[in-house]
Design a protein around this nucleic acid. Structure first.
Lengths: 199, 199
DNA sequence: TTGCCGGTGGCACCCGGTGCCACTAGCGTT
DNA sequence: AACGCTAGTGGCACCGGGTGCCACCGGCAA
């Protein structure tokens, strides 16, 4: 059933991912079993877990490629730029999606930031991002990658990026790039918005 | 077996927690089954899951009380203080442990920050912290708690606190309070350490 | 045809977590 | 003493995520 005969061109992987995104968005992550996702994609449960190590990973697309690209952007970046600016620029470029990819991205990010289990899982994926950013800061400052400042910059910039994604999700009008810049500007400036907006 | 007759004074809950901490530290979180923890504490697996909703929760002690205390400290805090300073002070006070509690705290935090599954789970617990801090910032600034700045401040200060815990774990000589202040100072000052320590 | 190999499916199993029921220990009531 | 209530417990069966193992099928080279 579900016409497995179709396609052949598109990887099964992409098909599974779409099915997962659709079902999770419709019924909630916890309510959908891996069996159901596999069925919807026309494969067996066992095969599902060959393509994705975890039910949660079906949502993430090729995230590893993003991390690699972020790393490349950071190492190749302008050395005269402020460190935070270079990180912001890299985040913006990695998240520079074409217009027609945005709906998928929204669906993806809404799940990740909304579903508790996926939010928890995200920590696992973001650990790679933090490592890459911390190493960049370490190169730029001469500090050890495991010391306070590189770790701190990596952790806080990722927090800023995540927050930017949240506001982007909540407000359709702002672009992702703008949201990222707003967040990074606050961060780099020591949170000027906290200096009493009334007087 | 295992002399269940003993105690009666100490909650079983505390006994289970100690057993969990010990076994997880010794053999690794994933290697220890909930059955083994229950056995070591002299209770059944079923009862274990009545005391802790999750295997991971056995590590967290009475974390909810900490969140409540953080909330109280924030709402009762000095209104003239800089917002970031008030958050820093609250974090420091909540984490003001007696000398003899530090080994337990180290064990706890090392597990949480080291074991991938526990790190992922921590996101779930820290969500409460973020909410409390965001509401504090919202009160102080007049912004909506769901808007950019409160969210951003909550997320980045928590990232700073977590980073402080990491450096505290790695270096026995620095106190937790000092580590927290260092991290918050960098954050509040827009990362002065990034302004080229060489020249 | 033979042999190899990557992708697949089925099966049994482990483990975390839950619903249900039965049991016990207390404790106040009559 | 018998009753009933309640809190804490243990056992059991079940679900769902994840894995190891084996068997199968397809393509492809020798």
């Amino acid at each position: 059933m579900t016409e497995v005969v179709t396609d052949g061109r598109g990887d099964t992987r992409a098909r599974v991912e779409r099915a997962a995104l659709e079902l999770f968005s419709r019924d909630g992550y916890e309510q959908v079993t891996s069996d159901e996702v596999a069925d919807a994609a026309g494969i067996s449960r066992r095969t599902f877990f060959r393509h994705f190590p975890t039910k949660a990973d079906a949502v993430w697309g090729d995230f590893h490629a993003h991390v690699v690209r972020l790393d490349e952007l950071l190492t190749a970046g302008d050395g005269d730029q402020h460190v935070l600016a270079s990180i912001c620029a890299a985040y913006v470029q990695v998240n520079d999606y074409a217009e027609d990819e945005l709906p998928l991205l929204r669906q993806r990010m809404r799940l990740i930031l909304t579903e508790p289990a996926l939010l928890a899982h995200s920590q696992t994926r973001y650990a790679d991002v933090d490592r890459v950013v911390a190493e960049h800061v370490a190169r730029r400052t001469g500090a050890a990658a495991g010391s306070l400042v590189p770790r701190l910059v990596a952790a806080t910039t990722r927090a800023a990026a995540t927050t930017a994604f949240q506001t982007w999700l909540a407000d359709e009008t702002v672009s992702l790039a703008v949201a990222l810049h707003e967040a990074f500007d606050e961060l780099a400036g020591g949170f000027p918005a906290l200096e009493g907006p009334p007087g």
